[in-house]
Design a protein around this nucleic acid. Structure first.
Length: 287
DNA sequence: TCTTTATGGTGAG
DNA sequence: TCACCCTAAAGAT
């Protein structure tokens, strides 16, 4: 389940469990045997996340991990099962063991390489990025905003779920050119994504629906639900939670997005301002 | 036991 | 635009 919130959560949990301690590092599967042997027994100084990248610092040796689509960490406190045939990496200290399976990247790099990787990424809402940085990246993209949000050089850490949810919550059609968005729409996207990612990091699951909207007491309750956490992602053919219009799915940026035809109109709606200057209009949300 | 699915990204054509 | 890589877990048989 790796979007940025998952990666930052892993960094936090692993920092708490392993940082400042000597750690046992092995590669049960063998595909990271040489790297594991180099790190085994050494002190893990710190764990950091940026976007979807993880960096484990052992002095000037840095373990770089990217989970990709199917990669995951399984963490055990106390008794742990034997690693499976797919366990690329095992990190252990005291009572805690973390198994890594299916990562897209698991490699040793030096500090310069880390700098290059981070330099190629846009602002990370959970990593000190700013709304101004995001706005500057969006302003120079002619691609659809739905594609731009998946581009890690525009904003780091957003994946297919946060993209669909943020565009829905801000009432923005995914096909609209990024640079044509109004400043308030860009601001809405950044703030919505940042807030949702902070919540996701805390809950360990993406929740965007307002609890009161579905009669729930808290986001924690929604996190346990499979049906009520999200507004748009993978809900094609179902009625919009806000207006009951049937949600529609198509491809944007080589991945499937789902959106509401009514809440996310192709062009921002405008209406005449009653008490403003003659001919003045203001934007209104689809819903 | 088999099949399906996934929140990502790259490289070839 | 497509094929392809990585693996666990849920669902189907």
């Amino acid at each position: 389940m790796p979007e940025g919130h998952t990666v930052h959560r892993i960094a936090r949990l692993h920092r708490e469990a392993f940082a400042g301690r000597g750690v046992r590092v092995t590669s049960p599967q063998g595909r990271f045997a040489a790297g594991a042997a180099r790190l085994d027994g050494r002190t893990l100084d710190d764990v950091e996340a940026y976007g979807k990248q993880l960096f484990y610092r052992f002095g000037s040796d840095i373990l770089h991990i990217h989970l990709g689509l199917v990669g995951k960490f399984l963490i055990y406190h106390g008794e742990a099962p034997a690693p499976t045939a797919g366990t690329r990496l095992s990190i252990a200290a005291g009572e805690t063991v973390a198994y890594l399976a299916g990562p897209m990247v698991c490699e040793l790099i030096d500090p310069d390489t880390e700098k290059q990787i981070v330099a190629g990424l846009g602002p990370d809402p959970l990593g000190g990025g700013t709304e101004e940085q995001f706005a500057a990246m969006v302003a120079r993209r002619s691609a659809p905003i739905g594609a731009a949000l998946l581009d890690q050089s525009v904003i780091a850490g957003v994946g297919n779920v946060y993209r669909a949810e943020a565009l829905f919550l801000c009432g923005i059609h995914p096909d609209r050119p990024a640079r044509a968005l109004q400043p308030r729409e860009v601001a809405c996207l950044w703030r919505t994504i940042a807030g949702a990612m902070r919540l996701g990091e805390r809950l360990g699951r993406i929740v965007t629906v307002s609890p009161e909207e579905v009669g729930a007491a808290s986001p924690e309750d929604l996190a346990a639900s499979d049906d009520e956490r999200l507004y748009a992602y993978r809900r094609a053919g179902l009625p919009c939670r806000r207006c009951a219009t049937e949600l529609r799915a198509w491809t944007v940026g080589a991945r499937t997005i789902t959106a509401c035809p009514h809440c996310q109109p192709p062009h921002p709606l405008r209406r005449t301002v009653q008490d403003g200057p003659a001919g003045a209009t203001e934007e209104v949300r689809g819903c």
